[in-house]
Design a binder for these strands. Structure first.
Lengths: 349, 349
DNA sequence: TATAGATGCAAAATCGTTTTTGCAGCAAGC
DNA sequence: GCTTGCTGCAAAAACGATTTTGCATCTATA
């Protein structure tokens, strides 16, 4: 008689199946892994076990499996990429790729990459975040102000790196804080006087910095504050609608700074539909180094960090922390790159 | 005296630390989790343990942790998104989002999402793929022909769904196989006679189907085979260079079908630089439902599956398999959607 | 009719961790 | 001098799975 423990609700574990079928857990495991031939389990028993497993809807516990038959993957380090659902798409992809590259290059451990997404503002409800039960280290991005406030209060019991957020006690990788100043200078140098900034809502720490520094520097240079055009979110459509509304209500502007490329693309359409020409009537500056910027018509001038660089640095920082143990909250600033193209009146390239 | 087992290389586990510090594993665990106050560990012992842990470079084994202190996350089902590094960006993001949505809607389990990337053609080297050690179910996408051949030979011991690949024995979600026929018809109906198709290299199962059906239908309609323009990969730049080369060597074409939106965007630039007008001189058709297509100048006409729909269906199919146990390789075809815009001479919308 | 081998399965060991329990040793109070 | 209570830690139990070991029972051979 196999030893059984009668728990009232039979759970879908090997023990549950074993109890249901009246056999031992060893036999169940053998059958479930199709080892029943070499383990000499009789056809009748195989059938009983299969029936019980199907009946209970058995799903193996991956943690238990890895723990036991880990082999080389026993030392597996779990890296998490934590981001809100609202994340800009290309960034996430860069980070996945960068982590995988860094990991492939490194070390004696094997790594696996976990994606955890949370609704913006609800980071604190993420299971395992505070206990460290789910991963060995985390890259955290696209947090809202509420999430940042939460992170300020707590201490994460594992290495972590924030992307584009500076919070005391955390290591982070950020774009230069004056990202907005350069576009102001570039637009001013190409003789624009009535500047405007187009951004989404709500503002994150880093887009707020872009907007603020753009406003400051613009005011310094032109003597008057730029118009602030607020889109509903970060999509092309939102950018289109916001700029269309601005132009329709008589807004004037000959130099536009859009804080994301999707917003810029939407703005292009509104500008052209209005019969205006880029850059003659309105120069446009964007952010970042998206693949598609050079293919805008006309090609979009950008100032921003290289996403690839940002991702590389963040991954490297994370793996360093993992290797050397906790390094005190180090902040790495990723330098800006400029690509001046036709949209700001420069020779296209 | 704490019980110790002398293994020659002291591994970085609680036992290793315990041996190194001359204490029991329970004490080590308490200190590592900052429970030493309530567990009444003396400061001297705490220090010894911390030193040993730092010395050994301890990293907790996540599987063991989850197994032990699983609580609500004990029943966690691990879903894997398996894709080659070369995957189109937006698709990956759609799948992540769709899985998360499906999971949030569902059931008594909690899920976690694992991303596994493999170099194109090397799927078979992925650890855990054949043993089922790493996940409970998998969504597999962006495989090459070599990967498909491998999948044909093996049987995966867990539910899985292929995206845009039909392989006997597997459940899959695919776009309609005649995706290429519609663009041919649309171009022909807008009076184009010299058609061409622009695609990347190497061809996957689904892009091959697009190209083939486009060629067939075009030949039927126009009486001659379309030109085949091959780009080096799927990037904007590759599309630009390929089309530029085609035009420079005197290639003629008044109706172009580009099998990805990035290729189409690159093609736009080559066409415009050549002094040609879209759609007057050359009509252009793209694939899919990328957010940016309506914002091309002129807006790009597309025929393809909705990525969101594709992702939804695949996630749903996967979770169904998980719930109901193995359903025989069911293939779901996702219907085509058409967005006819100015690039094919239709009124923009 | 002993005996050797095959058959079918239960029991135990193990993976790395956390938590609970138990138990010495010591100080304080009567 | 004897209980009482605290301190500090070791030992054991548990999480869910896989693999190894061992032991009855049957079958075939001499």
């Amino acid at each position: 008689m196999p030893k059984s423990r009668s728990k009232s609700p039979v759970r879908a574990t090997v023990r549950g199946i074993a109890d249901a079928a009246g056999v031992s857990i060893g036999s169940v495991s053998s059958v479930l892994n199709n080892r029943h031939v070499e383990r000499r389990i009789s056809p009748a028993t195989v059938e009983k076990i299969r029936a019980a497993a199907a009946e209970l809807g058995y799903l193996p516990n991956i943690s238990a499996r890895r723990l036991r038959s880990g082999g080389s993957s026993k030392n597996t380090v779990v890296l998490a990429l934590i981001t809100s659902f609202e994340a800009p798409i290309p960034l996430v992809k860069h980070f996945i790729a960068a982590l995988q590259r860094a990991v492939a290059a490194g070390s004696d451990h094997s790594f696996s990459l976990l994606i955890e997404m949370f609704p913006a503002g609800h980071l604190q409800e993420m299971p395992g975040l505070l206990t460290g039960d789910h991963f060995n280290a985390a890259l955290i991005m696209n947090t809202t102000a509420a999430d940042d406030a939460f992170l300020t209060r707590v201490h994460l019991p594992y290495p972590s790196v924030l992307v584009n957020r500076a919070i005391p006690g955390y290591a982070s990788v950020v774009e230069a804080v004056t990202t907005g100043a350069r576009p102001a200078e570039i637009l001013f140098r190409s003789k624009r006087q009535r500047l405007a900034v187009l951004h989404g809502s709500p503002l994150t720490q880093s887009t707020r910095a872009r907007v603020d520094t753009f406003m400051q520097r613009s005011t310094q240079l032109t003597g008057s504050a730029p118009a602030e055009i607020v889109a509903e979110n970060l999509s092309e459509t939102a950018g289109y609608e916001a700029l269309q509304a601005f132009l329709e209500r008589g807004g004037k502007c000959d130099g536009l700074y859009a804080v994301s490329d999707a917003l810029a693309l939407g703005a292009y359409r509104a500008i052209k539909e209005r019969g205006l020409t880029i850059p003659a009537d309105m120069a446009v500056m964007g952010v970042g180094d998206y693949d598609i910027s050079p293919f805008f018509d006309p090609p979009l001038s950008c100032v921003g960090v290289s996403h690839r660089e940002l991702a590389e640095q963040a991954s490297a920082l994370l793996l360093q922390q993992l290797a050397r143990g906790a390094e005190p909250g180090r902040t790495v600033a990723v330098p800006l790159v400029e690509a001046l193209r036709a949209s700001s009146g420069h020779p296209s390239g």
